[in-house]
Design a binder for these strands. Structure first.
Length: 438
RNA sequence: GGUGGCGUAGCCAAGCGGUCUAAGGCGGCGGAUUGCAAAUCCGCUAUUCCCGGGUUCAAAUCCCGGCGCCACCUCCA
């Protein structure tokens, strides 16, 4: 298995370091808003990757945090006039519901606010080691000091000068150096706080991931991942904090998923060009979204547009139609499966594998199709699991009756209406077949 | 301004020195089939990979120079 490692800038052979178990940490949501399809891309990629690891015979222990305290959660809760915990919980629940529908493997989902103790201990260790200082209740990380001893910018591949050149933010007056970042923020009136050796306050961004990953997985992590936009500063700072606290290597492999784009630009809150996952899933199946999100190599940016869901729904429907004709107990074609696995073993090249899948449809044999089915299930597709739909069945019966009476106007109307919601009716010699394309 | 990445058919997207007169999906076109459709099946849909040079027996793939786009440097998956 080869994976591209952001840290080294190369594809490297990957295997878990110990116990045949992959220890992985994926940066999860800051639960300040509804998860959108851009978020889904990262989590879908890692879900499919972890499933592939299992297929290779490795165990997987993976952590995906919820960051449930930060500036935006506080300010948004204040705007809405509700408790910040209520707001964080609302979006955490929304994420969990979306994750359930997306068929994500259950992971460990620790919350930042449940690890204040570990966070405080880690900050104390950093202070004790001389890489942080306290100013008016704030604790700042000494970037230049750490840089001298360990090197800073290893992941982002940036020099301190380059970071300074781009600095656009007014530095906090209590910082010794504009590069320094907050480990602990002093309490402000009206904001939530926890007690610490440095007074009341709350954790900075970054530190919760260092604390929770070390605690739940142990160092070094085999894999640490997230969206590419987290490389700097978030992941660079996680490395700095963890190494400054423990002196140990933080993570062996760093994996970064490319961004979802809309009309060529990054999908983001500020551009307001994002699509809410829950709303997409109300109209299209999780398999369709999964297929779309895995249709480009995970490191590339991927263009998203709503009509694209329709395109992928068609593609998935074709696969399902082909698989419906193969008995469950058909033998798989080992050589074909090896080809599919070879694509994934090369830095998880899912588009390559999908290409092979559709090519197999041109010369279908039961064993090839059985392999297609096994492969898709392995990647987390649910395929044929359709829920029973009474209303749909009645409409189909009503239309059948209309056709018998040669009332084609009514029959066609029913068919058109259903088609508009992604349900295609097909009249065959064996009767009317229902095909869901969504 | 600095750093990194990308530019492949109408759209999306693999390939990254020879098996490429370039996968696959969607769309489109023609035919079989059909109450009409849909699905399915058959055939077609880039002699060419942003442009211009170069290296090589051989380049979409490497090098140089343009042009265009994007990301990060600030919160972002």
């Amino acid at each position: 298995m080869y994976l591209y490692n952001t840290l080294t800038g190369r594809k490297e052979e990957f295997a878990p370091l110990r116990d045949n178990t992959v220890r992985a940490y994926v940066c999860g949501m800051t639960v300040q808003d509804s998860p959108h399809v851009g978020h889904m891309r990262v989590f879908t990629v890692f879900d499919a990757l972890f499933r592939f690891f299992k297929a290779l015979g490795w165990d997987v222990v993976a952590v995906q945090n919820f960051t449930d305290i930060d500036d935006k959660i506080i300010s948004k809760a204040a705007e809405e006039g509700i408790d910040w915990r209520f707001l964080a919980d609302r979006y955490e629940q929304e994420y969990r519901e979306v994750a359930r529908r997306m068929n994500f493997l259950p992971l460990l989902h620790p919350r930042a606010t449940q690890h204040i103790q570990e966070i405080v201990e880690m900050i104390q260790a950093i202070i004790d080691n001389g890489y942080a200082y306290v100013r008016e209740g704030n604790v700042w990380f000494s970037v230049r000091k750490f840089a001298r001893d360990y090197g800073y910018g290893k992941l982002a591949k940036m020099s301190l000068d380059e970071m300074m050149a781009g600095a656009r933010v007014e530095p906090d007056p209590t910082k010794e150096d504009p590069l320094d970042f907050a480990l602990w923020k002093a309490h402000k009136e009206g904001e939530p706080y926890w007690y610490s050796p440095w007074g009341k306050g709350r954790p900075g961004w970054h530190i919760e991931c260092s604390a929770m990953s070390s605690k739940h997985l142990g160092l070094p992590l085999d894999i640490h991942g997230g969206g590419r936009d987290l490389i700097f500063p978030h992941h660079e700072d996680e490395i700095a904090q963890t190494e400054a606290a423990t002196g140990q290597t933080f993570a062996r492999f760093w994996m970064h998923v490319g961004l979802l784009t809309f009309r060529g630009e990054k999908m983001s809150k500020s551009l307001r060009n994002y699509f809410i996952a829950k709303e997409i899933l109300a109209e299209y199946s999780p398999d369709t979204l999964r297929h779309l999100l895995l249709s480009a190599h995970y490191r590339s940016d991927l263009e998203f547009y709503p009509e694209k869901l329709r395109e992928h729904a068609k593609a998935v429907a074709r696969l399902k139609d082909a698989l419906a004709r193969v008995p469950e107990d058909a033998e798989e074609d080992a050589s074909f499966r090896d080809d599919l696995h070879a694509a994934l073993k090369d830095d998880f090249n899912t588009p390559e594998a999908f290409g092979l899948l559709f090519s197999a449809l041109d010369s279908p044999t039961p064993s090839k199709l059985a392999t297609v089915r096994g492969f898709l299930r392995m990647l987390g597709f649910r395929l044929g699991e359709e829920e029973k739909d009474d209303t749909l069945e009645r409409l189909v019966a009503l239309r059948l009756d209309a056709r018998r009476r040669k009332d084609y106007a009514l029959a066609d109307t029913i068919r058109d209406v259903l088609k508009a919601v992604g349900v295609e009716l097909m009249d065959t010699p064996e009767g009317t077949k229902v095909r869901k394309v969504r």
